[in-house]
């Protein structure tokens, strides 16, 4: 398992990461979220052992992450980090051998994955000749070619079309089934919501949301009520606990501070004509993210 224990990273007086705690079990997918500059990449660098924490520790199966166990880890950085003058084959051989893999094994896995991603024809093409999406595939491939026990993915879906995104998701799921620990960051919160069990949301290096997604959503009291009826928006706004009323194509969306205000809204809607829908739903991860990050910024 991977344990991040009270990790803090300082540069002089500046604290890049504040007392970060989380753990990942084999077969778990963990989401590290945050706005740009929140400290996600720095945290990944600490996990990878590229930066030494000022306080706390990162333990990989009880050991410090270092060059003795780095061959079991796959790392894909946010920006494309490929040697563009090399061919796909040369690059994968280079990165694979840096993970102490033998040439025949790299070639065998390379053939498999290139076929899987439907880019076998590009094997002898230079990286710079590939499209951005295909470069992203090669970068992802270089992170998984060693079949890692821990896969660190910084924005793996950035720049991908929906079809390729699904392809990546499928591969990540396959690794999860094999017992790989996966930690990744993404701005696409729907993906995080769809396959992460646990998350940490960072803002200015601090964890402002932390834990299992279900619990995070349960703990977030604000709710959304979707109404399709002849209601008056101003009257809705005047109800206690209502903080937002928004009209959309499917009717009216009402946001309330907590579940105790639902009854008041329901009582009002009952007085209206043509009631077609009254539906209460939990806030999405995206709403929680915006709400918490916005709140955290206001505090700063």
């Amino acid at each position: 398992m991977l344990e991040v224990n009270n990790v803090e990273l300082r540069y002089g007086d500046f604290i890049a990461v504040h007392a970060l705690n989380f753990s990942i079990q084999p077969g778990e997918i963990f989401g590290l979220l945050g706005t740009n500059g929140a400290g996600k990449t720095t945290t990944f660098r600490v996990i990878m052992g590229l930066l030494e924490p000022s306080k706390g520790s990162v333990r990989y199966f009880g050991e410090k992450v270092g060059y003795h166990n780095v061959d079991e880890i796959g790392y894909m950085i946010e920006e494309r980090s490929l040697l563009t003058k090399l061919t796909v084959k040369e690059l994968l051989l280079y990165f694979g051998q840096l993970k102490s893999m033998s040439k025949p094994l790299i070639l065998e896995r390379m053939e498999y994955w290139l076929k899987y991603f439907e880019i076998s024809d590009y094997k002898d093409k230079k990286i710079k000749e590939l499209s951005k999406g295909n470069q992203q595939k090669i970068q992802f491939l270089s992170a998984i070619i060693n079949e890692p026990k821990l896969l660190v993915l910084d924005e793996p879906f950035s720049g991908l079309d929906p079809i390729n995104t699904e392809l990546f998701v499928k591969v990540i799921r396959e690794f999860q089934e094999k017992g790989t620990m996966i930690v990744f960051s993404s701005h696409q919160l729907d993906h995080v919501e769809s396959f992460c069990e646990k998350i940490v949301v960072l803002e200015k290096g601090k964890a402002i949301i932390d834990g299992y997604i279900k619990k995070v959503k349960d703990d977030f009291e604000k709710l959304t009520i979707n109404i399709d009826a002849d209601v008056n928006a101003d009257e809705l706004r005047a109800l206690p606990g209502v903080y937002l009323v928004k009209a959309n194509t499917n009717g009216i969306q009402v946001k309330v501070e907590s579940k105790e205000y639902i009854q008041g809204v329901f009582d009002y809607v009952k007085t209206c004509q043509n009631i077609m829908r009254f539906e209460v739903e939990q806030a999405s991860l995206s709403e929680i993210f915006v709400s918490k990050v916005g709140g955290a910024r206001e505090k700063v």
């Binding site: 990878m48 780095v70 790392y75 980090s81 490929l82 990165f95 840096l98 993970k99 270089s142």
Partner: peptide
């Protein structure tokens, strides 16, 4: 690419 290299 250095980040991938230095991570190894």
């Amino acid at each position: 690419a250095i980040e991938t290299i230095i991570s190894s």
